[in-house]
């Protein structure tokens, strides 16, 4: 179970490309060729995972960018991290 102290990073098997400043991104899983699309919120989250980062730190950083209550953002990012982990796009550190 992912929680605020869980440290995660982008998988070495995944790469993503944004579509411009403040734009969504496409994510490619290199070993399988699976392709994903995501919105700006997910992209900003991935930007923070180039190096290992705790989920709580990611919440702190994104609170500076988005107008959203902390509890809401943390809940959404825990759910998102679970999806990314299940898809093999991020890894636990």
């Amino acid at each position: 179970m992912i929680h605020s102290d869980t440290v995660i990073s982008l998988s070495q098997d995944a790469t993503y490309q944004d579509m411009g400043d403040n734009e969504p991104a496409v994510i490619l899983q290199l070993s399988t060729g699976r392709l994903f699309t995501c919105n700006l919120t997910t992209r900003c989250f991935l930007d923070l995972l180039a190096d290992p980062c705790s989920l709580g730190d990611a919440v702190d950083q994104l609170l500076k960018t988005f107008d959203v209550p902390r509890e809401k953002l943390e809940r959404d990012l825990i759910k998102l991290a679970g999806q990314l982990l299940a898809a093999g796009l991020i890894q636990l550190n």
Binding site: R34, N39, F45, L73, L84, A87
Partner: peptide
């Protein structure tokens, strides 16, 4: 500083 409007994060697998 001005913050951006928030949208719930999405992740969709494409064909």
């Amino acid at each position: 500083s001005h913050k951006q409007d928030y949208q719930e994060p999405t992740l969709e697998e494409q064909e």
